[in-house]
Amino acid sequence: MAQRPTMHDVAAAAGVSQAVVSLVLSGSSAGRASETTAQRVRDAAAKLGYRTNLQAKSLKTGVTEIIGLVGDEVATSPFSGMMIKGAQDRAWQDQHTLMTVDTGGDDDLERAAIETMLSHRVRGIIYTAMYHREVTVPAAALDTHVVCLNARDLDGRAPSVIPDEVTGGYEATRSLLDAGHTRIAMVNIHDTLPAARGRREGYERALLEVGIEVDPELVYQGEGIQRSGFEAVRHLMALPAPPTAIFCGNDRSALGAYQALAELSLHVPGDVSVVGFDDQDLLRDFFHPALTTVHLPFAEMGDKAAALALDPSAPADVHLVHCPVIHRKSVAPPKGR
């Protein structure tokens, strides 16, 4: 096997000292070497196929150029791929790589994953949840800089990056109010979830802001699945004064709502307007007409979490990421207006 090129080989090829090579390849050459010299070093390293010895570097600096990401079912969640991509892109932008472990909710695997990452002297660990919830960060992870992603640290010991559910729910409801609706129902998801509580708070805030009292008859507590969306809309449309618009707590509920309305020979948005939440790409093609929904900004959240993981001085604040309304074809003025 051919011997791997060394820093000495790069220095000889570029006609500079090893100290200059070290400065250039570590990104610390500004003001110490000309750009011409720095480029000559980079060209020599590329031609020789030189790679930095991360193990030796970590012994010197105490960290490696790696960020760890540990999560429950992050490999199988329909959303987590975008979180990972956002974190990976930011890590790569800052010349780091992302080490990802999906624990599948297994506590033993989670402990082993964290210990492995600590043994690699990672710059930080992103502790990720499949869906937005409150978590207790494992004590071992606190041995390095840890950031919660799509989760809020209950103990307030780590920065947390979460979607702004309240503003998302508010803007979803505002889109229906702005279209002229005043009788707006909400089909929510599990009320134990922070997402459900935040989305309902935004819904209620938007109604109260324009002087509309929240009607408990129009708030249906669903399960966040297609069937409960179907059942909710069957119930809501049987009321003496049915809603003219429905805000669904997620897109799966909205799909059930579409099906129930079709069974009742009601059209979206001609008879009833519908807004969802999630902007789940796997479901988009099932909506006819296309669903107006709130986008969960997973890539932006992953980017933010990676940036915080690389900043050991970042305080344990909660960072809310805006969830914009994606306007499509499912909202129109109330029938007759």
Rank of each mutant, 00 (worst) to 15 (best):
L283N: 03
K304C: 11
V331D: 01
I184N: 05
S228T: 15
A257H: 02
R234M: 15
D9I: 02
K47A: 15
V187I: 15
F287S: 02
L109E: 14
A241S: 14
I114N: 04
I162S: 07
L69M: 15
V233S: 07
E223S: 12
A206W: 07
Q39E: 15
F298W: 03
D164W: 01
G224H: 08
A30Y: 09
G202L: 09
A141W: 09
A158E: 04
H145A: 06
G15V: 07
A314M: 07
H190S: 11
E213S: 15
V10I: 10
I67D: 01
Q18L: 11
I67S: 03
L239H: 09
S228Y: 12
P78L: 00
P5R: 00
R183V: 05
R32E: 04
A75N: 11
A260Q: 05
A19R: 08
F298M: 10
I114K: 02
G202Q: 04
S58N: 02
I125L: 03
R227Q: 15
S80H: 06
L193S: 14
V166D: 00
L239C: 09
R157E: 08
P194F: 06
E217A: 14
G49R: 01
L291G: 06
V210T: 13
P78K: 00
E204Q: 14
H190V: 07
A140L: 12
K329M: 09
L291Y: 04
S330L: 03
D271N: 09
Y258G: 10
P269C: 02
E300L: 11
V70T: 08
Y203S: 01
L69Y: 08
